[in-house]
Computed example of a mutant assay.
Amino acid sequence: MSPSVHEIAAGIYRISTFLPDVGPGGFTMNQYLVDADEPMLFHLGPRRMFPAVAAAVARIVPVERLRWLSFGHVESDECGSMNAWLDAAPDATVAFNELGCQVSLDDLADRAPRRTSAEDVHDLGGHRMRTVQTPHVPHGWEAQVLFDETTSTLFCGDLFTRLGDAPAIVHDDDPIGPALVAEDVFGATAVTAATGPTIRRLADLQPRTLALMHGPAFAGDCVAALHGLADAYEARFTAGHAVRA
């Protein structure tokens, strides 16, 4: 594995590994390093990918300088390497919402995590990170996303998941069609009555860049993309109810 590294917004680096054997056409797994006075890594990756991802991080900042670790939900590809990062960065702390800490991280993390509250804003020194809780969106009771108020970058986790390889960042592109193709392959989204409204709440943040965990970062009309994704899931929810009726 040899991750690529690209700056997709000021001080925000996409670390991406292409996995050709995952899904039809392969799959990217991304981490995002926020280079601040207190550097943060969002998405930590699986345990077995730690050496390669750590080497990529070290191209930007020394691993031991990491101060904050976070991710979208508790799952191996999001946080399987969490304790390896805690060991490599002795001053690092996992930051996650109260529910995720209570249910999983208080037990799983080798050091006590920092609990974040709903709409918590944390100044990293050069970047202001807002925690937004998104239960079951796209999946996971404890799901969350982060929004960097400084660059208007939304770290949107598994939303807009896309198959195949792609450039580090795209502008004139359709993020919705590929996301629905991936959804048809994986069936990973918990489509409920709350899915659409939750995604629309993210659109209200007015992001300028969407930092996807699986796929290219998107710097087109992010607000329209989020509303379009909400529309698509609401249509699927309505159709599902019609079939059951």
Rank of each mutant, 00 (worst) to 15 (best):
C101S: 02
V63R: 05
D204L: 00
M40E: 05
G157D: 13
V181H: 01
L69H: 03
M129F: 09
T198G: 00
M1H: 03
P3F: 05
L163S: 13
Q206H: 08
A166G: 15
D158S: 10
V74C: 14
A188C: 12
F96C: 08
H139C: 08
A118H: 14
T189I: 03
L154M: 08
G215Q: 03
C79T: 09
D221A: 06
R200F: 02
V57Y: 05
A56H: 08
R65W: 11
Y13N: 08
A224H: 05
D231A: 04
P197I: 05
A225S: 12
A168G: 13
R59Y: 06
N30A: 12
S152I: 07
S104A: 13
Q31H: 06
G11M: 07
E78L: 13
R114C: 14
A182L: 02
R208Q: 10
R208S: 10
S76D: 14
R128T: 13
A56F: 07
L108D: 01
P90Q: 05
P90L: 11
A166H: 15
H241V: 06
I176D: 02
T195M: 01
P178E: 09
V243A: 10
A239G: 03
P3L: 04
T151E: 04
M129E: 10
F18Y: 14
D221F: 04
G220I: 01
V5P: 06
A190F: 05
Q133M: 11
Y13H: 09
D106K: 02
C79W: 03
G157Q: 04
V61M: 05
R200D: 03
L19C: 14
H73C: 15
H227A: 00
V22Q: 14
L44I: 06
M1D: 07
V103Q: 09
R130D: 06
P135W: 04
V63C: 12
P3E: 00
H171K: 14
L212F: 07
T161Y: 10
G100D: 05
E7N: 06
D120L: 13
F155K: 09
L124E: 10
D91C: 10
I12F: 00
A55F: 05
L66S: 09
A52S: 11
R47S: 15
V121R: 07
R201S: 10
I176W: 05
P197Q: 01
E75A: 15
G72I: 08
S81T: 07
G177V: 15
R201H: 02
P113A: 02
A54R: 00
S70K: 04
V103H: 04
E98Q: 04
F186C: 01
A232Y: 00
C101T: 11
L69R: 00
E234Y: 05
S4C: 11
C156I: 15
F50H: 03
G177P: 06
G215T: 10
D120N: 14
L44H: 02
I15G: 11
D107E: 13
V181R: 01
M40S: 08
T134V: 10
A55C: 08
A219T: 13
A88Y: 12
S117G: 15
L159I: 09
R236N: 06
V74H: 14
R128C: 12
E234R: 01
F155Y: 12
A88W: 09
F237L: 03
L108V: 12
L44N: 01
R208N: 07
S16G: 11
Y233V: 02
H171S: 14
P113I: 04
A52Q: 09
F186D: 00
A95R: 09
V223Y: 00
L69G: 02
V223H: 03
V57I: 09
